[in-house]
């Protein structure tokens, strides 16, 4: 079943104003660079973005913030982004901060067809406000609902024309979870091969979850915190 589209522009063609998007990546690692650039060019507005982070000022989701395309962010950590903070404090941007494991598991629940999950994260904190609490084996848990996103936009390392995906290192992060959770899942990959060329034993995301796939171009893969050690230093 061929899922390929020519480029990011075609892949995001029906993303509309007000859409709820999931965007894969952790920091700038494993983010769908091509699709983000295409969304900026397309100029869609009032988006709700579910993504662990909000990029940096001039890259990643930060680019969409610059163009005031985002109405609401649902994230676990949004530091390193001055424009984000400005829009948040001025009330232009709505933000829901949720624990990272809760974010991941709410994606997972959506992908596994489960309406909700229970997690202890946030019990006794402001995250618990207004949420149903249940006690299991003497410990309290919050009821958290599965996400309901119109589009999941993710980045993988390799993919085939059937939409099977393989991720690289820690660029996996939220990508496979979101891939499973979107009503429409768009995958951009660094390497696109004909179906049959990836080892079925090593597929991270089976193609059934992927609706559109294309080979991305000109990846920048920016590093947020370049940290190195001296050659003779052991740690």
């Amino acid at each position: 079943m061929n899922k390929t589209v020519t480029d990011a522009q075609e892949a995001i063609r029906d993303i509309h104003d007000g859409a709820i998007l999931m965007l894969g990546g952790f920091g700038l690692c494993g983010i769908p660079e091509n699709c983000i650039a295409a969304l900026v060019t397309k100029g869609v507005k009032r988006l709700t973005c579910i993504s662990n982070n909000a990029g940096v000022d001039d890259f990643g989701i930060g680019l969409m913030l610059q163009h005031k395309q985002v109405k609401k962010m649902i994230s676990s950590y949004v530091g390193e982004n001055a424009e984000f903070e400005r829009q948040l404090l001025s009330g232009e941007l709505e933000v829901e901060l949720i624990p990272q494991g809760t974010l991941a598991t709410r994606c997972m629940a959506a992908g596994y067809g489960m309406p909700a999950i229970f997690t202890p994260a946030g019990v006794g904190t402001e995250v618990a406000t207004g949420k149903e609490t249940r006690t299991f084996n003497g410990k309290d848990y919050l009821l958290e609902y599965a996400f309901d996103a119109d589009f999941a936009i993710i980045k993988a390392w390799k993919g085939d024309t059937d939409g099977n995906l393989v991720y690289k290192e820690t660029a996996r992060n939220f990508n496979p979870l979101m891939a499973m959770a979107g009503k429409v899942t768009i995958a951009e990959v660094e390497e696109l091969v004909p179906a049959g060329q990836l080892d079925p034993n090593n597929i991270h995301t089976p193609g059934i979850y992927v609706h559109r796939i294309f080979r991305g171009k000109n990846y920048q893969k920016r590093i947020e915190q370049r940290t190195i050690r001296k050659v003779n230093q052991s740690k």
Binding site: S75, S76, Y77, V78, G79, E85, L88, L89, V95, L97, I98, P99, Q100, G101, T102, T119, P120, A121, G122, V123, T125, V127
Partner: peptide, 12 residues
């Protein structure tokens, strides 16, 4: 207003 990241999950 940076967010909790994974801290709430870890401590819970």
């Amino acid at each position: 207003v940076k967010g909790m990241g994974g801290a709430m999950d870890l401590v819970a």
